[in-house]
Write a protein that binds this DNA or RNA. Structure first.
Lengths: 233, 233
DNA sequence: CAATTGGGTAACAATTCGGTAACATCAGTT
DNA sequence: AACTGATGTTACCGAATTGTTACCCAATTG
């Protein structure tokens, strides 16, 4: 899994679907779509999206049932319901079934994006197309890293490693976890390769690699990526 | 810690305030109120509410600034904004400042309650990641220990030992049990190694290691970990 | 009250772990 | 084929952690 957030959109109306897809793509999200309930439920389980945007009026299985099924499967990602049904009873029903937000059509795309970001911020999956840390900017969609506007060239592995770190800011990560995520679980390499890559990445982003600010070593555990300055919401 | 949730309502209009207070009380929430920004901010810091309902139009300090200040103070509770300003730009501003939800007046009280519940449900679920004892916070995912916001550095063994103690709070634990759980049953070390590790851990978390509050010795048996005072929310 | 036992801990020793230099490999390019 | 740059592996070193031992004190027991 690379760093950008993956949104699953379950919506049957083609025009709406395209609009959502474009809007999410423009903000650097990866979108996967399902035009029908069964497929959506299946994707929710198999594709591990970071958030689900769910229309309620769907052919066959309706949105409420999908919501209930997702929660019953113990999946924890935020669910944003999207619908023309604006009756209070519907809203309360949706939220009580495990949805996190309920937006009534017609809605404003900017508001939807802001709400999606707010939920992702809590989940910590990542929020925007540009990820800020210290005085760096990591651009997901263009795959570039900048410092004070100047690009810092990273190799493919270094970039994927940094992406992964960024997507899991603050977490203690074992070498094996990192290997699975960045190298892929099919490739077999020594856990020490992680150290090697961390060294080169540190050389590029840490002002003093001996006293790293961003990529911290946790002896006996692995590494932890941290944002330089103040608190992380 | 698992009692009723405490809601801080920051709202200057008396009628609205009473309505909210009654509605929350009817659902079994504990409500604390502030009719003015400064007070509200102060209560947010000192009273540790589980959620904040925040009006934007307030005399003196407005809701946006309170929201920003709360997040700047690194307080993590959900914030639900409540306001007559329904312009998309206002909503996006609020959400980007760290609010979790934005409801426009006039609103339906049932919807507000459902949304508040949805946010609390999520917070409770993720609070799983933090273990509180005395005035310490043990963060599982980041492998860190804090006291009053200051990090206390632990070695890997110390951390694992503390984790184990925390997971079996209140139980009498023999040295062999501890060895199996923390060292792993394949490794062979003297049971005295446990004592050694307990000593260093005490040195870091007990204010007086001679009179330990958290890690107590049970002569002839082993140790027992206890939470200091009451659970501090 | 003396003897015994168990735990605290200082001091030392052994071990483990991570950083990194040096080398190897591999793919793409000239 | 030689070159280049990226990436993986190995080996070595220094530092931090961890285990052992020994000694002492406190509690328990006879």
């Amino acid at each position: 899994m690379n760093g950008r957030s993956r949104i699953l959109v379950i919506e049957d109306e083609p025009a709406m679907l395209r609009g959502l897809k474009d809007a999410f793509a423009a903000k650097g999200f990866e979108t996967i779509v399902a035009a029908e309930g069964e497929t959506g439920l299946h994707l929710a389980c198999s594709a591990h999206p970071d958030l689900i945007v769910l229309d309620i009026m769907l052919p066959n299985v309706n949105g409420y049932e999908i919501c209930r099924a997702v929660r019953a499967a113990n999946l924890q990602m935020p669910i944003v319901m999207l619908t023309a049904k604006g009756q209070e009873a519907d809203i309360i029903l949706g939220l009580n079934l495990g949805a996190d937000d309920y937006i009534t059509k017609p809605f404003r795309i900017g508001e939807l994006l802001a709400r999606v970001n707010a939920h992702l911020r809590r989940t910590k999956a990542s929020a925007h197309d540009i990820f800020h840390f210290g005085d760096y900017e990591l651009h997901w969609s263009s795959h570039k890293l900048f410092r004070h506007g100047a690009e810092i060239e990273l190799t493919a592995k270094e970039f994927r490693l940094l992406e992964y770190f960024a997507s899991r800011t603050g977490c203690a990560l074992s070498r094996n976890e990192i290997l699975d995520a960045v190298w892929g679980n099919s490739i077999i390499v020594t856990p020490r390769s992680v150290d090697r890559c961390v060294t080169t990445l540190r050389a590029k982003i840490e002002s003093d690699p001996r006293l790293p600010i961003y990529i911290q070593t946790i002896r006996d555990i692995g590494y932890r990526f941290e944002i330089g300055q103040d608190g992380v919401p």
